[in-house]
Design a protein around this nucleic acid. Structure first.
Lengths: 249, 249
DNA sequence: GAGTATTGGTCTGAGTTCATACCAATTTTA
DNA sequence: TAAAATTGGTATGAACTCAGACCAATACTC
């Protein structure tokens, strides 16, 4: 800790820890980020339609004018296309990208720091979500959805769709927990993870390993074994994190 | 969908889970909430001075004009007093309140739901923070601060100061984890907890029990035993949650 | 006591965001 | 084919937020 520009003090400053920016950026930037994230994570896959503007705006607690600015940005960036009239709407046109190896060097120190924090946080919240999901009585429909999300990951052979399926899988588990706070936490963590994986080439062997761990998590959740689900997810997070930390420095 | 106004569907709607309001309210309301929370949780105890306006504004990523609106609201509400000139500033005048038993009935169903979610979330993030803290090499200053925060809880005899000391204790552990995301999560959870405890009378026996659990958490963290720290904090959260759930319905 | 530094208090003009209408295109329905 | 419904597109004025400059009060320094 000698060369690093910012050195933390030996003591804690509670207020410094607690007082955080009251909100990140402008409303329309936040919309772009949230919708862009949802699209890239595969919540809205290629070819699917976004909700109508009026509904999206009310969902995001934002005026339609602001939402439209965001939509314009997404359209500009080539993520979506829009047609009007009844039956029209906005449709996803973004094809999932593959990781580009040379992007890894460009990340700033702050971003790197944030990524490492996301990995720590993930190791806490995702196992928590898995445990909670395993603890609940799941309807048949939901058990089905979980297995389906898992199958989608296992059967996706190409890297980019696999990445999206993986995100959807983890988000599905979070949604099963039924905890709004946990869902938001996992969404934010998956978004960070997605960024990281775009900057890092993924190895085939790791995908196979990862899928075995996914299967273990699904089994534990369906069997209603919270502790086992949590531990399985912890292993999965640990292994992913070790890999990423290694490739990030 | 017959009796309950909002019943969740048997299946999951991923987009519904993931798309959340892009930001809660206006900037100045958010400032009021954040500063009010910090004061009530005892980050700024009675008689202590808040940072200068210019610094606070930059810390919260908000213009000074907006921050001042928030300050005016806090002043109006009697939480702080302001004097000007060099050496002046804004000082906390709020005496920690004691719980009022009859407040419990007034909480809305949505709030109740949010509180229950906060308890679930807490059971995930606070044990996680404790484990992380135990896993790090702590400087002597920090070990000292942790013990001091714990002593403050143990020695606070009256309910209101005890509540603040308790919040500070939990926030201290979160801060020790050095994870910004975890710190924010614990802050938000403690804020919800604080609201709940204001609406519910606290029993002396529970305070004693709680302090024994605090001690166990501190021992585990200082001994560098992450698993033990996590489990101790889990027990603490479980017991608190059971009590609160019982009193809330 | 004079000067300086630090603090809250005030003002202004520009940029965002908002709610609310209304217009235009297209499909569904009668 | 005509009407209705649904969708995106546009316009307007109010409210909020911002950055920056400047004023006023107070305490420290010389």
């Amino acid at each position: 800790m000698t060369a690093s520009p910012e050195q933390h003090p030996p003591g804690l400053d509670l207020e410094e820890s607690v007082l955080r920016p009251v909100r990140g950026h402008h409303a329309f930037e936040a919309c772009v980020e949230q919708l862009g994230t949802a699209i890239r994570l595969g919540v809205y896959p290629l070819g699917s339609a976004l909700p109508a503007e009026r509904e999206l705006a009310s969902r995001l607690h934002v005026s339609r004018a602001t939402l439209r600015e965001a939509m314009a940005a997404l359209r500009e960036a080539g993520l979506v296309e829009t047609t009007r009239g009844r039956g029209g709407g906005t449709v996803v046109t973004l094809k999932p990208r593959s990781p580009s190896a040379r992007a890894a060097a460009r990340v700033s120190s702050a971003k790197r720091q944030d990524w490492l924090d996301a990995l720590e946080f993930r190791r806490v919240v995702e196992p928590g979500a898995a445990a909670l999901a395993a603890q609940l009585e799941l309807t048949d429909v939901r058990r089905e959805q979980l297995e389906q999300a898992h199958d989608a990951v296992a059967h996706a052979s190409r890297p980019a769709p696999h990445r999206q399926a993986d995100s959807r899988f983890h988000l599905t588990i979070a949604a099963l927990s039924e905890s709004p706070r946990l869902i938001e936490a996992v969404t934010s963590v998956q978004s960070a993870l997605h960024e990281m994986l775009l900057a890092i080439p993924v190895l085939e062997t790791n995908i196979a390993h990862s899928d075995r761990q996914h299967a273990a998590v699904v089994r534990a959740i369906l069997a209603g074994r919270p502790d086992r689900a949590r531990r399985a997810m912890e292993h999965h997070c640990d292994d992913t994190a070790a890999l990423l930390r290694g490739l990030l420095g």
